[in-house]
Amino acid sequence: MQCLEMTTKRKIIGRLVPCRCFRGEEEIISVLDYSHCSLQQVPKEVFNFERTLEELYLDANQIEELPKQLFNCQALKKLSIPDNDLSNLPTTIASLVNLKELDISKNGVQEFPENIKCCKCLTIIEASVNPISKLPDGFTQLLNLTQLYLNDAFLEFLPANFGRLAKLRILELRENHLKTLPKSMHKLAQLERLDLGNNEFSELPEVLDQIQNLRELWMDNNALQVLPGETTNSVINQCKSMKLWPLHCYSRQLQYYLKSQLSNSSEPSPAQSFFLPSFFLFTGINPKNLSQKFLFVSISQGTQCVILLNL
Rank of each mutant, 00 (worst) to 15 (best):
L89A: 04
V306C: 04
Q238W: 02
Y257Q: 04
L66I: 00
E230M: 14
E54I: 09
L276F: 13
K11L: 13
L262V: 14
P18I: 00
F112D: 00
D33A: 05
Q301M: 12
K288M: 10
D83I: 00
E45V: 08
E114M: 11
P136Q: 01
Q212C: 08
T91H: 15
L208F: 06
N286R: 11
K117C: 05
C305H: 08
M6L: 14
Q210E: 07
C21T: 12
P43F: 04
V17D: 01
N98I: 02
T123F: 12
L32I: 10
R15Y: 08
Y256V: 14
I307G: 05
S234I: 04
S300Y: 15
K179C: 11
I170K: 05
G302I: 07
E55G: 08
K183M: 07
L158T: 01
T231P: 11
T92F: 12
H186C: 07
S202Y: 13
E200S: 07
F157P: 02
G197I: 03
S300L: 15
L150F: 07
G197D: 00
P43T: 03
S251T: 11
T8W: 12
S260Y: 09
L224R: 03
S38F: 14
Q212M: 06
S105F: 08
S87H: 12
N144H: 08
T303Q: 10
N221V: 02
Q210M: 09
S128R: 14
